[in-house]
Every structure is written in structure tokens, then in C-alpha cells.
Design a protein around this nucleic acid. Sequence first.
DNA 1: TCTGGGGTCCTAGGACCC
DNA 2: TCTGGGGTCCTAGGACCC
Length: 462
Amino acid sequence: MFEGAAILHADLDAFYASVEQLLDPSLRGRPIAVGGSAAGGVVLAASYEAKRFGVSGGMPGRRARELCPHITFVRGHFDRYQQLADSVMAILGDVTPEVERISIDEAFLDVSGSVHLFGPPDVIADRLRRQVRREVGLPISIGVARTKHLAKVASQVAKPDGLVVVAPEREREFLAPLPVGLMWGIGPVAQAKLKSEGIVTIGQLAEASPGSVQRLLGNAVGQKLSALAVNEDRRRVSGATRARSVGAQSAMGRKEATPEMVRAVLNHLADRVAVRLRAKHRAGRTITVRVRYPGMKSVTRSLTLNEPVAATLTLTEVAEQLAWQALNDEARARGAAMPPDAMPPAAMPPAAMPPDVMPTQAPATEVPATQAPAAEAHHLEISLLAISVSNLVARHAVQQELAVSPDDPRREGSDPGAARLAVDTSMDAVRAKYGRDAVGYLPAMSRGGVPDEFRELAEKEV
DNA sequence: TCTGGGGTCCTAGGACCC
DNA sequence: TCTGGGGTCCTAGGACCC
């Protein structure tokens, strides 16, 4: 029946919400939302009972309440999610070593080599679903097909708590009537563009000329989609890949961008990122800061350094420069009518840049010296700050310098970047022993909203 | 009274090099 | 003095996914 590869896509249903219903039987069969509240915050996950009312992840709690007046908001048991998802993955791993986990609750399996032990792919899938339900207590949907794309679409169609098998000879007829939005890579924007050309179903996409699709959606996306629509998908199931970037962000509702606030938030974010980098002996050359304003408009500023960084302080300083670069640009744009001399003089001395963080090429606009928070003049309000580090490399070169402790006389006059890393490394060790809050750059930062456990669920292996 | 946090990939223009 | 073509890297923005 299955020539070549037999791929399964397994996807836990409404994962966080299902876990809450598992832990608290009184929630079963009822519309619930994890995270958010009627007052605010966003819904992180909704149960199927709530989804029937139109509630979905990412939606403001207030909106969820409007759509579904009887919805129950529950705080997440974030510490349990990882553990339960891992148990499920272990079950999946029992039928094949070829498991590609793509998120906390989702994985591809290649069971081509397992049929002689466990039977045909659909039998394997059925058995896995029962076993997950019996041993972990969670509903899981599985799609079975010849390619990853088909298996993924099939599992979507199977939800909730279902199994859909696409036989190789029926692939086209399976896909043809389905909406293009089910395809990987088609979001609201692409969907709208396609619709404007009368393309609504995958069948219509398959019949459209690849050239026209490429003109509509861009070369890369167009090519991929055209291929997928006619079932040319050669992607293999492969093991985990390492992260290409590491970031952290913090939403703050609406706050005035004061030097103190910006510094405190960026320092906290830089610390989160840098700790993860150092734990894996990695560092990155490109630092990107994102500033979002009320109304969701956001801008980014980035800088690529000659040497990779992993020191919290260095990362903080560069991020601060970039953030003020963005904020001052914004202030200028908004205050075009305002005479330039109305801007206050530099209130914040530019941070001393260690030698290892000079820009690789002179940026179009000068980075140093002018990055004072002139934006204050406009009382700019922001709604989010983010830091991301990319261009990651292994940190071998710097490691030997770490052997020198911060107070070692030999360190005198040596690379300040290395000294900072040494301090950080000591701090990492203290935290490993006494907990994350044992020591830090900041006195008891108030971390709003989202618990660290939730952040960690989304982190990719660095 | 726009709503979290973690990511990936693509595009387009400009600088720079040969 | 002006002209060509190809390639790499950097920056900023944006779409998309879970």
C-alpha cells in the first residue's frame, strides 16, 4: 500500500488546555482558556469546547469572554506540560528512532522501517493513539501519508482526536477540496492574495501556473507551494536542528521609554539570552533589538560585530545603543516640526564599547556617541522590547580566557570582553547551585505576567 | 482603547570586492 | 571617465509557525 516512505504527523490536541482538563476533571467537557482573563492578557490555548465559540490562542482574554461568556480561565500548570509532552514523545519513539520533534506537542515519524515489526502505518498510528490516551491520558491526532506535507495536512483534518490516512493513490483527491490555508506557509496574507486571484482550494493552487503563484507570493514561497500542491515534497524526517538565533522579549502594555526602564528591561532580556548562550558554549555576532509601539507597529535595529558575544553586560550595552537608535529615529519622525535644539543634550554617556564589539563595517549612521535618550522629549510610549542574537558560533576561542578568574592579576589589561564573561560564568555557577534569583544584575526585577516556565516551553535547543 | 513569547525564512537595497 | 557582471555581507522589514 505505501510505496517508499510512510510518514506520521502526530499532534496533541489543544495541548495546554487538554492537560488542564486532565489534571482537573471538573474542567472536562467545558470551555476553558489557559492564560488570559476577562480583564486582559492573552489566551495561550483554548479547549475544543471553547474553540467552538471561536476562541483561539493569541486572542485577548476580553475577546474570549465576549465570544464565550461561560468560558473558564485557568492559570497554566507550565511545569507539567514539558513532562507530559516528553512522555508522549517517548511513546512515539518506541516504534521508530526516526522522530523529528518540531515543537513541544508535535512530531513527524518515519515508520517505513517499522512495518515489519508493528504492521502497516495506519495500524501503527492507531496503536500509538490508544497508547497515548491510555498511558498519558491525552488526546492526540495523527495523519498518515507518503510525505511530510500530506501527513501534516492529514493530522489537521483529523483533529480533534482523530486519525486520517491518505493512501498514495488518493493524494490529489484528498487535497483538492481543502482550503489553501491548511498548507504550511500560507497565512492570512498569502491566503488573501491567492483569493484575489480566485485561488481558494489546494486543487485550484495545483492547477495555477507556478509562474503566476511566484509573482503573487515571491519566488521562494511560490516555488515551494506549487511543488507541495502537486505533492512534490522530498523533505526527510530528521533529528533536531540547533537554533540559529536566541531571543527574549517582554511586553509591557504601554510604558514611557525612560532610560531607567529601557535599561532595566534590556538588561533582564540580555541576561536571559546570554545565560542560554553560555550554557551551550555559544556566542553570536549579530544583535537585533525590536521596539514595538502601542498599535503594534514595530521596528528593528541590528548590528553585526567582529567578534561573537555572550557576556550579559556587553549584550546589554549594545542593545541599549540599538534601542535608543530606534527610539530617537522615531522621535525625530514624530517631531519633524520640532526644532532639533529642542532635544535635550546627551543625558546618558555612551557606554564604553569593549574592543571586541566594534562594528564590522561603518554603519550608515553613526552608532556611538549620539545615542542619548533624546526620545524622552517626546515621552515615547512603547509596548514591547526584544533582543535577539544570531550568527551563532561555538565559543571555543574565548574559552581558554575563561580560565582566568576576574580577580586574577594576570587579567590586568586583558580583553574586557573576557573579563565580563568570567564574571558571568561565576554567576552562572552560583545560579546553578542556588537558583536563578540567587544573584543577578538587578535588585529583584519585577517580571510581569508570563512565568519563566512558560517561556522555557517555547525555547529551542541552542 | 490591538494581544505573549519562542522561533524560521525570505526579500530588497546598499556597500564592497574582484 | 565610464562601463559590466558576479558574489558576499549587512540591515530592515515582513510573513509565517507553534
